[in-house]
Amino acid sequence: MKLILHVWRQKNPAQAGRMVRYEANDVNPDMSMVELLDVVNEELILKSEEPIAFEHDCREGICGSCGFMINGIAHGPEAATTVCQLSMRHFKDGDELYIEPWRAKAFPIIKDLVVDRSAFDRIIEAGGYISVPTGSAPDGNVILVPKDASDRAMDAAACIGCGACVAACPNASAALFTGAKIAHLGLLPQGQPERHQRALSMVRQFNAEQFGSCTNIGECEAVCPKEIKLEVIARMNRDFIHASLS
């Protein structure tokens, strides 16, 4: 089948970008979205044009490298699917696809579809961990964790840090990302000693990175490839409010 792609091309942060139209003929329905870009890029290289820069690595939906907007939806139309696992059978012959990078002040564009998501690392750096020096841990079974708590912590910990939540949010908020880590660690007994300080530090960093605020509308939850729930944001709010006012 044939698809028309409109792709955001931008040489570097300083130069202005624009949408460029490409035609992809011979699209195999079993291809993934990034494999389609591979094919387009092969043709561009042979025509001595610069290939479209886009991030990707594991191509199995877990590393969180890939991600862009397809027709206005982060990671495209399929729920719980990153672009590297989005197969072309979800599109029809002749469809037009508008492909744009994540857009947020906190995610400056580097080139084409590649953006700088290091703000996420700095949010983790601010407190997204449990301070436990190597070798100082007691036996694993000394810390009993109720199955329910462990399961819910795992739900939150499944975040791959792709940035789709920020991209989809009308406010470019990183609340889902920040909340996921606060919820993951805060649900476990190991995370209790630093729970409140963690919420204070991580929220402060999330604000310092110039992400917007959460308005609880749920766009992030809808596009999250790992189906992280808004509940994690409520947990972040609770821990932060408790830490601030107690």
Binding site: I130, H184, L185
Partner: peptide, 11 residues
Amino acid sequence: QCVAQGVPFAR
């Protein structure tokens, strides 16, 4: 070590 770090192993 991993348990202490908060790795959510199955329980």
